[in-house]
Amino acid sequence: MGLLSKKDANLILDPLADNNPITIQVLGICSALAITAELKASIVMAVSVLFVLGIGNVVISLMRNIIPSKIRIIVQLVVVAALVIIVDQVLKAYAYELSKTLSVFVGLIITNCIIMGRFEAFALGNGPWRSFLDGIGNAAGYGLILIIVGFFRELLGSGTLLGFKVLGDPIEKTGLYAIGYENNGFMLLSPMALIVVGIIIWIQRSRNKALIED
């Protein structure tokens, strides 16, 4: 790795697989349930968290020596809430359509436990550059799972991907539907998100026994 040292590169690569925030640390499950019924929402959420966690980690890291330890959680919460609100306001003024798509996610970003988790576990003890890499890595690991879950839920639940009818039209009975295929409405309900995440965890741990806890 020319650009990054091996240690730094691992900050990004680890959370993608063997230290994934969702499947290994089991953080951020709530938003994984809430918004993965369609692929587009998953992608928007992944990008938003990437942005907030990358910047937030740097801000907290820069402040790490002056934050009083007694109120550090409150300080972290204020930083992330302020960041998200400012971004939301700027989007409302200059990218109104995009801000309407994001409106649902603002609250979900602030309460996302991955963000607070990384602030607490990493940014408070590391420099800004490493914190930035850690933020990007964890957000990418989170986003990856979100997109996988969103892909399967939208495909099997609605028969579409990003809104395109990839399997044919269920009402006109074209494509797969002509031979009797039906959408599985259960995929659209939140419990199925947990089951899909469960299947990912199962596959991941059966391929890498080191991840199995006693």
């Binding site: 019924a37 929402a41 649902v104 609250g107 659209l188």
Partner: peptide, 10 residues
């Protein structure tokens, strides 16, 4: 809507 679930109520 202001905050219905993406993919469902939205």
């Amino acid at each position: 809507h202001k905050g219905e679930t993406p993919g469902l109520g939205a």
